[in-house]
Design a protein around this nucleic acid. Structure first.
Lengths: 341, 341
DNA sequence: AATTGGTTCTGAACCGTTACGGTCCTTTCA
DNA sequence: TGAAAGGACCGTAACGGTTCAGAACCAATT
């Protein structure tokens, strides 16, 4: 018996030695982890479901921060972290079914993702991040709507009324272009939907007709998308005074496009982001900083906390408005600008 | 029977429907992945063993690139990727034993790491990265020694003879300070040992007494370490004309320290790195670029390649010497410098 | 009517471990 | 000296699924 391995106290040292000896002689490689998991009903790992191509997550600084926090929590608990491949192309839910884990963390997937549905069907605890509160499972996130509202108020206070928006993808289908108000409302990414609605609310209150504000969507999340998105907005309305991006990565891209056009930031145009990533900080970006690492850690803690009392729980982390040097008052007001389209 | 789930062809559609119906009615959550793994002897996941605190890996751009490549390979194969917690503090090998995986990838751990030993004892295929060729398992890496030799030749060609070195940690114990030649030879990190030996060989050939070259070691791998390491070297010998770092991260830190001292790079001092990370590229760093993403992908491919013919295999990836603008000829030669220590 | 062939369905064996309860032996105390 | 108590050791039954052999069934052929 392989009690020798796990319960050295249950048997005499002599027998233990003898057992271990013959085990080695017979080439026994030690207790099989899978069989143990089956018996003990503990896999010793938590699964992480990411919507993007698995590798894609490693390109996004915010996702990396989240991963780091989650890994930290897992490490503390001595648990493994299983990255579950969830290719959004083919709807291959098998990977979710095949994952031998004690629980799932779901990070920023569209709310109609079949993988998410598959996870929710599994009889294991789950924590969703940056998702709407499902009411049935734990949740951790931030107040995207409120944070963006606050950022918008800042811009409105500076005098911006004529703006453009570049956002990340709103649904599973690719739509690189302008977004109708309908699509904004129906967005399947909770985070994007709420950031846009925060913007819409603030600017509507300031008397801006939101349906006339150019909002451009980009499927891929990288600086190139930010640049091309900014270009598309500026082509539509060269007179905008502020370019609001729903992520820092997009904002950094937008800034390169502004520079390419000879627009000085913030003198000629204001650019803002969201996330508070390192590169944005170095660029002095005006943005909303969210505690990505803490978010990951909180998700892990929530999942691994064995005292599961009155579940489900919902955690909202605080954000911070960072006023950098990429935002300023519009130059004399858009209507006074002497150069036309 | 849950053949209904996996072998729809083995039974009539009517029975299948009936089985699935009652299953749903009874609240059956679908086949248990662990039990399936036990029976089929397939876990559907590969384990990744990192030496650092798990979260630490997410701070190192090279490690992230490796992770990305590995994740890519896993995604292609539809396999999960299990990050195994291997806290170097406590020698808790249990996490390795507990991991239900079909194979292991071991990334840059000291060759005397007990976790590595535990992995090698497990009866599953293994690929080691940035490790010496163990002869018993697959290996993927680069020619650290040769690449560093080439970089050294470049510096020697420029005229550098009086140099200093900042390297990453050489063993499991913390030793933030100067390194004896003995410790260099006995280094347990294959990568560091070979890079240093490449340097030693080249400079010895150029007539430099390697035992007199100040080599400083840093346990933590970040820019702050690079800066403090550079400071320590420069304090010891302010007349060095080149500061060779065994990673880009350290080199970037060293450059901040040089700037702090009013030394212009490369006019007053040459600084070089190793890895070819993005931030280094932007800084114009002279370095050796290694294909980190490809390394991860190759490791995954090697592990997941089922046609395991004449194992073990050993893969060496190509590196490229990048001459940036942080290296130049020493200013008039070290012996002519008029300012003393 | 009996044999053959093919398909659908059922049952049992196994994967390797841990938990549990029972047996046996030794020690202690009345 | 006998009974009770305790410790060491061992055997067995799950855990939940997959697989495979063979039973049962139906139809077609001899």
């Amino acid at each position: 018996m392989s009690n020798a391995y796990n319960r050295p106290d249950q048997l005499s040292p002599e027998l233990r030695r003898r057992v271990l000896d013959t085990a080695r002689r017979l080439g026994y490689p030690g207790p099989d982890p899978v069989a143990r998991s089956l018996r003990t009903r503990k896999a010793g790992a938590v699964g992480l479901l990411l919507t993007e191509n698995l590798s894609y997550a490693f390109r996004d600084p915010a996702a990396i921060g989240f991963l780091e926090g989650l890994a930290l929590a897992c490490e503390d608990a001595g648990t493994g972290l299983l990255l579950v491949p969830a290719n959004p192309e083919r709807e291959d839910v098998a990977s979710v079914h095949r994952a031998g884990v004690d629980g799932f963390v779901v990070y920023s997937v569209p709310d109609d993702d079949p993988h998410l549905a598959a996870v929710l069907e599994r009889p294991v605890p789950t924590v969703v991040c940056d998702q709407p509160d499902l009411g049935t499972v734990d949740r951790v996130g931030i107040d995207d709507r409120g944070a963006m509202y606050e950022l918008a108020k800042h811009l409105i206070g500076l005098g911006h009324r004529r703006i453009g928006v570049v956002c990340m993808r709103l649904a599973r289908d690719r739509n690189d272009g302008f977004v109708t108000p309908d699509r904004q409302h129906a967005a399947h990414f909770h985070v994007q939907r709420n950031r846009l609605s925060g913007l819409a609310e603030a600017f509507s209150e300031a008397g801006v007709d939101w349906s006339q504000v150019p909002v451009v969507e980009r499927f891929d999340h990288n600086m190139a998308s930010g640049a091309s998105g900014a270009a598309q907005v500026l082509d539509r309305d060269p007179q905008i005074t502020a370019l609001i991006c729903t992520s820092d990565v997009l904002a950094l891209g937008a800034m390169t496009e502004a520079a390419r056009r000879g627009l000085r930031v913030p003198h000629d145009i204001t650019v803002t982001g969201f996330d508070g990533i390192r590169a944005g900080e170095e660029a002095g970006l005006t943005t909303v900083r969210q505690p990505v690492l803490e978010k990951g850690r909180a998700a892990g803690k929530l999942l691994l906390d064995t005292n599961e009392r009155t579940r489900p729980r919902s955690v909202n982390l605080a954000t911070e408005l960072i006023i950098g040097n990429t935002s300023a008052a519009p130059r004399g007001g858009a209507e006074e600008r002497w150069f036309g389209p």
